[in-house]
Design a protein around this nucleic acid. Sequence first.
DNA 1: AACCCGGGGGC
DNA 2: GCCCCAGGGTT
Length: 267
Amino acid sequence: MLQQTPVARVEPVWRAWLTRWPAPADLAGARPAEVLRAWDRLGYPRRALRLQECAQVITAEHDGVVPDTEAGLLALPGIGRYTAAAVAAFAYGRSAVVLDTNVRRVLARALDGRALPPPTLGRAERERAASHLPADPATSVRWNVGLMELGALVCTARSPRCTQCPLREQCAWLRAGRPADEHAARRRTQAWHGTDRQVRGRIMAHLRAHPPEEWAATAELLAAGADGADPGALPDPGQPTRALASLVADGLVSAGTGVQAGWYRLP
DNA sequence: AACCCGGGGGC
DNA sequence: GCCCCAGGGTT
């Protein structure tokens, strides 16, 4: 849930989620439609399906116990380098480099004197971070937590609170006068209005509003933007159909067959 | 390496 | 309005 989503927005959904599905086996047996509805508006709904797949693999192949090694975690669906390291370190106390956006930024500033880390995370950056990880596992966990929290609360991307920073005396970026981001030109903020992502989001919101067993919408309605808009007025009339097809391909939407052909609902 | 994938809140 | 957020998977 925390992948690309702020903690404050995750917390209430997470609490309700664990009340409803306390263990992997509970989530594994849920209906995907209910999982997607419980995910609500956290965004990137494919994460919800992968989390359930993850629970199913853990239930079927790991006796219901979350793997306790980075390699074991990394093999699970929806678990990448970051999440594998975070769970290994924070849940199991193992030594791992938890390189999230916050830690990358703190290291880029403190060690390299740069405003922000490079757009893509490469091997060199990972290995350099690993070289700074304390050898003792318990200490390494504190190192990860400390840098992550520092990045989230003090060394923030937009308005860092340098006067309150415990690293202010040793920060290369602050010492250099907080120079601007040299990669600014290459960072392209993702468009939103009028994109397929926005249309996909609207379709999912529409389907979430209906009971899971109900065939909730026709292709025609969804082609109208799931809210009754005039398709002819859209800049790209083919976009809703394309977005719907991509949702079906992703397993986020179920397409009816037979007498239900042309109707859609959550899977 | 580049691209795709949501949605909300801070400023 | 723009920017950012405890990234992952595919091409």
